[in-house]
Design a protein around this nucleic acid. Structure first.
Lengths: 232, 232
DNA sequence: TCGACTTTGTGCATATCTTCACAAAGGCAC
DNA sequence: GTGCCTTTGTGAAGATATGCACAAAGTCGA
């Protein structure tokens, strides 16, 4: 892990902040569509579902873009956050694995509107290769490296079965990709310098189940912990 | 602020730990399938992609289930984590919104194997109602309340368009549901006591884009911050 | 120009999470 | 037994993140 040496102008935006910026961006876009010109931290925080002090602190990491007594200019803040997140440029994304999930992702409207252009759909199954989905023709995974290079793909989404994920991962990294969004239920091994983010549908349900169980069991004080001899 | 008075057996498991337990569980299941009987914190941490001290501290919140000098019994630990997460019981889940994503979720194998039983698929579109997906017949959202009550649904997955999400949310809460997994790109307003977890596909990509941009711009030290006068 | 009012930006206290490092616990060989 | 070896469980330090509360900065009406 690279040691963070604080620079004169420290550009180290906390991870927790980065994770919330897209949230603010969405809320702001909604406001822009409704014609709102300026917004206070209080209102924006409400719309984004966070505390207003946190919102202000988050935004302060980007710079001082508000006006005291007034609030934030919606359009300007959209621009600043977009720029910080790198959404003012176009990102070519390839989706590997065109099962149910891959299809859903290909058809998901939320990508294109944020500068993510789907530049390739690939699958190993010959029955799927050639299908037209969301305006693209599915290509065979044999073409993976050439698609990445020819179309300047810099982000790859892995939506393959778990068994194929690591191999796909290795190949895209060898082809120069350093940002991967992984939907396969495996922990990918990657070298330093490669970012992997993971979305796991069943993990989210498990976390919900944990809390649901707590609620069902009559609150935080649980009467009997060891109902009866569960022994190794 | 409620002062945390440590109970005799303190049942407050940190959120960060809860979020990782499913990860450990998956790694352990893989080991069990390969016939591994015991595992050290070092090896399990490696398989789960975390640091071994963190793993040990996480597990210590559940109890003292390891053997010094040996490690953890795989089967026993699977049982303990499953129990803690509430996966030893059956959870009835309803999916509202059977578009591309809803279909993908309905067909996702990772649910059933962890005690999540899909008890209902609902959609507002009459063209979709009646379709058979993953062994279930899609029902009309008019039936939402009755499906929840009759089939004992305690977790609802919202995979509708953004515009319909809040309304669906309100209805399922009114019907007694207190755990919601939301895929719609909106911040749901819910009363206290209701848990909402959110999965947002485009947010993950935006976070990747942020880091990718950093890498592309020549590492952590960025030369020119304000290329030229971007002014309000 | 001035004063009342609003809202930002942030210092500071607190809470939460991570990591180190090691004493204590147990297995195992002899 | 006894002593050596391995690995857990955890106290304490450090790192990050959150939230309060308020001074500073700006708007706006008179």
């Amino acid at each position: 892990m690279t040691r963070r040496i604080p620079q004169a102008r420290d550009r180290g935006i906390p991870d927790a902040t980065v994770a919330r910026l897209p949230l603010y961006l969405r809320a702001l876009n909604g406001m822009a569509e409704r014609g709102t010109a300026t917004v206070s931290s209080e209102d924006l925080a409400l719309a984004a579902g966070v505390n207003s002090a946190k919102l202000r602190k988050d935004l302060s990491h980007l710079g001082s873009y508000g006006t005291r007594g007034v609030g934030y200019d919606v359009q300007y803040l959209i621009y600043q956050i977009s720029r910080e997140l790198g959404l003012t440029q176009d990102w070519a994304v390839a989706i590997v694995g065109v099962g149910n999930l891959g299809r859903a992702l290909a058809n998901y409207g939320g990508f294109a509107s944020r500068g993510f252009r789907i530049a390739g759909l690939l699958d190993a199954d010959p029955h799927v290769v050639g299908d037209r989905i969301a305006g693209l023709v599915v290509e065979h995974t044999d073409e993976l490296e050439s698609v990445i290079k020819k179309r300047g793909v810099s982000i790859v989404v892995i939506a393959t079965p778990a068994t194929a994920a690591q191999q796909v991962c290795d190949r895209v990294i060898a082809a120069g990709v350093t940002s991967i969004l992984n939907f396969a239920p495996v922990v990918l091994a990657v070298p330093d310098g490669v970012d992997v983010r993971k979305v796991d549908l069943s993990i989210e349900l498990q976390i919900l189940a944990f809390h649901e169980q707590r609620k069902a069991n009559g609150g935080p004080i649980m009467a009997e912990e060891w109902p009866d001899g569960v022994v190794m």
